[in-house]
Design a protein around this nucleic acid. Structure first.
Lengths: 258, 258
DNA sequence: TCCGTACTGCGTATGTCATACACGATACTG
DNA sequence: CAGTATCGTGTATGACATACGCAGTACGGA
């Protein structure tokens, strides 16, 4: 009676979850998802995500480009599983007694660490909600940290979305700056001072008073620790969540009455 | 005495700012930055960012692909100016008396509106700090909203980064979902229920208790207003900023003493 | 035992892309 | 009016994802 054609994940992703029966006929497979993903990650690690082409990955394995299509229907499935491999199973030393705030903070730092170590994951376009095993496990761990907050399930999900989005965004920007600095050759941490100087030449102080003040303050010239920048935003977000959590836990029994 | 070779923005970006003297010799130009950008935007509007190739844009103008390189040294300069065109000059009805929170909120909604209307801008990879006229003007307006908060210039900058990152991230996710829904053919707002069903089949309730609870709550089945989702995160962030602002304004004269 | 069949890896082909380079035409500067 | 900087463009290069079809392989069932 049920609709016959249910919606499925791509075959390769289902295989990563361990479901999907093995094919029984035909020649033995010369490669495996794991080996291909590992090779692709190696290429990305060495030469960036742009260098990850089907031919390049295949060459790394001594195989032909087209052979990879026996393991992944399209390149973006490979990319999704590369990201999954990089995040790995969550290693979050957190106990329920530590409280949600410590949990979310460590969760954020944990994901940030992966992104910092493998900046190319940030270049993989997001194409939907998480479906790969490790990433879903990270999601699970994040939700677990929120179990005693009194938030609704929908709110918990929104909180995870908020924090993970923040981490991704901050990591993207900070690695962009680092890359640009390196690309500009010359000295290391000189991109922001240059940016300040460029803006100064372009903007009219009367039309851009606030920005002019920012530049004048010299903050573009002191090289900012990316960790401090990250901490600042994270603490703001956690403060904001805390406001809501307090509200929820204090009115747990008696709802707000004017 | 100064180092001769200062660092410059790409020529096309400088032209967008109105600096840069016009070339005086040679034939008249048949095209202009504005017309090319407009044509490129039109293509993106109609067929998405992936359809924006140099040939396609040139074809739209009845010109050859290579002619565009007389106006932009590389494609990413064109992309940056397409984004600039989409954001446009900020139209923010806000006065100083309205307070920073109303200002940042309207600022966030204003940028969100542009992204929602032109989802393809989100597919343009960020390649550094903002340098195009309109985007820098948006930055200026955001900073202006924070002028009475007592925050340091560095903190103001971080706040802008935080909020703009949030907007971008939320817009990306919500348009992704919308696109996926449309791509899945069939019914409109059915992607999240499907996602819930897929996860249910994949995850073990004992390993994924928190996620199982989320799914069981049924929030994937009610179609959520994207505006509500956005508002939730934004209010959390503004709450978090407010905590800091209060701290700063209450200790404006006497700094914190233990 | 043996054959059909489902699977394997791979060579080739297609169409798309950004962009380097060189050309002849153009229009301002001296 | 000569020199030259700049114009638009045609052609070429090398990379890319992926469709298609082929020849070889090993298992299930007869």
């Amino acid at each position: 009676m049920d609709d016959e054609h249910e919606i499925h994940l791509p075959e390769s992703i289902e295989q990563a979850w361990g479901v999907r029966e093995r094919p029984r006929k035909g020649p033995k497979r010369g490669l495996s998802q794991e080996r291909i993903i590992a090779a692709a990650v190696q290429v990305a690690e060495r030469d960036g995500l742009a260098a990850v082409s089907m031919s390049r990955v295949a060459a790394e394995l001594g195989a032909s480009a087209m052979s990879l299509y026996r393991y992944f229907a399209a390149k973006d499935e490979l990319l999704a599983l590369m990201a999954d491999a990089v995040y790995g199973p969550p290693s979050l030393d957190w106990n329920r007694e530590d409280g949600w705030r410590a949990g979310m903070s460590r969760w954020a730092w944990g994901t940030l660490r992966s992104m910092r170590r493998h900046p190319w994951v940030l270049r993989i376009p997001i194409s939907g909600p998480p479906t790969t095993p490790n990433v879903v496990l990270w999601l699970e761990r994040g939700l677990q940290c929120l179990q005693d907050t009194g938030l609704t399930e929908a709110e918990k999900m929104s909180v995870i979305l908020l924090v993970s989005g923040y981490v991704r965004n901050d990591a993207t920007i900070s690695t962009d700056i680092a890359t640009a600095s390196r690309a500009a050759g010359g000295s290391e941490q000189e991109i922001m001072p240059v940016y300040g100087r460029i803006l100064t030449k372009l903007i009219d102080p009367y039309r851009f008073p606030a920005l002019t003040a920012v530049i004048a303050s010299g903050i573009f010239n002191v090289d900012d620790d990316p960790d401090d920048e990250f901490t600042f935003g994270l603490e703001r977000i956690l403060d904001g969540i805390e406001v809501l959590v307090r509200e929820r836990t204090s009115t747990a029994v008696a709802p707000t009455v004017p």
